[in-house]
Structures are given as structure tokens and as C-alpha cells.
Write a protein that binds this DNA or RNA. Structure first.
Lengths: 150, 150
DNA sequence: AATGAAACAAAACTTCT
DNA sequence: AGAAGTTTTGTTTCATT
């Protein structure tokens, strides 16, 4: 049982919307050789099928007071504890992403803060809500991020 | 010389657009107690100032044939070589993000592929274009990713 | 599924305060 | 900076193929 194939024109629409989520149906139609209403139908279908999960603006965190990005690898101290870390951590606003991973650590978190002091304070909060040890890797620069694949 | 402060209403607009990048100016106006044209002006200004970097659709990579996500930490083998790895790696389509980091490794890459075989092949390509050693951490699941902060 | 037309809504532009 | 009004553009629905 495999997922239904995604058609070439749908893929084209997806890759255009991945780059510009506000592109008009008219322009999508021109780019795909389809009428406005045909594109409209296809986009609605892609949304319903969950192939398009949502639309978001990308903001400049540096300018918004959170210039410091880091990865925090998280390892449970007591392996017998229930593994509900994502839930426990989800109220911490500074955590942008949370991945469950295979390897030495259980989770990798990506966080954004203003200053090293904020990071120190955040690490304390993470350790206390979750009883974990942490390993932090500071991001120096971001050559690229969240590039559309395809 | 510091960046000009971002006003409360602008922050509100940004956080609404971060969640729904296709929200209409009319609805943004209702949510911020501003007229449609005032919101419009503000959004254009936020775009010009670079506070909004762009708008993108989030696609479901699992359904699109790339269910396997991994982090690849990259360490140069010959430290005397020029550090132009982001450039060398940017033509590799599977690399979604590239961060330059402080710590044991020089770069962290986030990649998406279809199968373990594709990953093996990709690792070979990365090592050959860049003369680096790699450490791979497989993502098992993604509790959340790219959450809007604020 | 796609099209074209029609009705509607929103965006962009202009002017005024 | 913002409001109000106008024109232009885009969205959505529907009948038809």
C-alpha cells in the first residue's frame, strides 16, 4: 500500500508555492499552463491531501531580538522515566524545533535566544522540566536554511 | 547604532503572518485594530526592512518521496583548506539547511532523502565534493519544527 | 479534471486629513 | 501615518465539455 503518486503539474505547483506561498492562482496558472480555476482546484486538493501543510512568513529573528541560535542535544538522565519530553518542552517558547533522533542523544532541539545569558537560563529551564543532560552547539552563521527541496 | 525597535502592532502582524502567510490584509486589520490600508502599508514596510524574509508553503516531504531526514555533522579533514564548504555543498539538492557552528564540527547539515541507500550515496557525494568526515544522526520523528517564536 | 464566464472579495493606488 | 474612495486584480463558484 503506497501513497498515490503526485503528478508533475502538482509538483510544479508545490515547488512554486514553497518559494512564494503568496503567488496568485493566475500566476500559478501561467507557470503551469493551466487555467486559474484548474490551479485553484489543484491547490485545494493538495491542501486537503495534506501535501501542503500550511503557509508561513519567514521572519528575521536577528532583527527581532533573538540573534543567537543553537542546537541542544538532550539525553535523559533516568532512562526508566516515561519518554514524554516533547510535551514537557513544548511550552518553552524559545524552542523552534524538536526532533526525536537515533544515536547517542534522544532529542535535538533548535532554539533561538537573545543573549548568552538567555541561553544559560534556558538550559536551566530545560534541565529542570525534563531531567535531562544537554549538549549545546552554537550556530555561528546560517549559509542557508529551509531550502525548498526539488 | 542599534536596529530600530519593532512596534507592538508590527510584532502582532508578524506573528499572525508567521502562522498563516496568506492571511488577508482585511483580516490582519481586524486582528490588530487597524484599517486595511494601514496594515497593507505596515506589511510592505516589514518586507522592505527585511523583517519578513519571504512567504513559503510547507510541504509534506514524507508524502513527496523523502521520508528520511537526518542531520550530518561535517568536519574538514585538512584544516589548511579554504573554508568554502557552503558553496561547494549548495548544489546538492538533498541539503535543506546548512549551519556553520562552533564546536567539534564545522557545519551541521539537515538533509532529506528517500531511503537509507540514498543516504549512503549522499554521504559519499558530500565527502567527495568537500573532503570532510561526517557524522550522521537519523531523525526518527519530528514532534514539531519551525514553530513561530513569539 | 479542465475551461470560461460571472459574481465577489481583496489589493493597489490616489487623494484627503 | 492613517482613512476613505476608486480602479484594478485576484478568488471562488458554477455551468459546460
Amino acid at each position: 500500500m503506497s501513497a498515490p503518486e503526485v503528478e508533475a503539474k502538482d509538483r510544479k505547483i508545490l515547488s512554486l508555492l514553497a518559494v512564494d506561498g503568496r503567488m496568485s492562482y493566475t500566476d500559478l496558472g501561467k507557470a503551469t499552463e493551466l487555467s486559474t480555476s484548474a490551479v485553484h482546484q489543484r491547490v485545494k486538493r493538495l491542501e486537503q491531501r495534506g501535501l501542503i501543510k500550511g503557509y508561513g512568513a519567514t521572519v528575521d529573528h536577528e532583527q527581532l531580538g533573538r540573534p543567537l541560535t543553537a542546537f541542544i542535544s538532550v539525553t535523559p538522565i533516568d532512562a526508566s522515566q516515561p519518554d514524554d519530553y516533547p510535551e514537557r518542552l513544548q511550552d518553552i517558547a524559545e524552542i523552534e524545533s524538536c526532533w526525536s533522533v537515533a544515536g547517542d542523544e534522544s532529542y535535538i532541539l533548535k532554539i533561538r535566544v537573545g543573549t548568552p545569558g538567555d541561553l544559560e537560563e534556558l538550559l536551566g529551564r530545560i534541565r529542570s522540566v525534563a531531567n535531562v543532560s544537554t549538549r549545546t552547539t552554537i550556530v555561528l552563521s546560517t549559509p542557508y536554511e529551509n531550502r525548498p527541496i526539488d
